[in-house]
Amino acid sequence: MSLSALSARLFPTIRSQAVARMAAPASFARFYATKKYTAEHEWILIDNGVGTIGITDHAQSALGEIVFAELAELKDVEKGDTIGSVESVKAASDIYAPISGKVIEVNEKLNDEPALLNDAPETDGWLCKIELSSEDEIKDLLDEEAYKQFCEEAH
């Protein structure tokens, strides 16, 4: 599945807003959503100035059964801030903001169904959405190829 298709499937509302904004001189002119990764094993799908964040499939598989997710607070965050955690029986792992901005939405479903983080880490198990304060930080993130390589090298 292409990233744009993934985005359209996951975030239909945002997509339609994106289309609407395209008509006007948008400050975030990106049309296709961009999926990036971090060395903390998180993914961020950036679409029209909003980044949806989650943990990678590699991360969930290494963590094992996730039984609790502490969700982010709706507030401004700096890149690198702790914005919650995911926990298995044996350990807690912090979630770090991959990018600066404002947390505008969290995936409340995870309160009742933390297993979504294992079953669908890169789709229904998303953690939160951050409205980017600057696009400059995007260039520091890893693309899919670089992340794959990072995971392989770490082995």
């Binding site: 060395a39 094993h41 955690s85 995911v86 807690a92 792992s93 979630i95 770490a154």
Partner: peptide, 22 residues
């Protein structure tokens, strides 16, 4: 994130894998 990776998969301690819990 993912200190747990350190023991779950014995990934060598890459600097990026900060740990909450050893």
């Amino acid at each position: 994130m993912l200190s747990a990776l350190k023991f779950a998969k014995s990934i060598p301690a890459a600097g990026a894998l900060r740990s909450v819990q050893q």
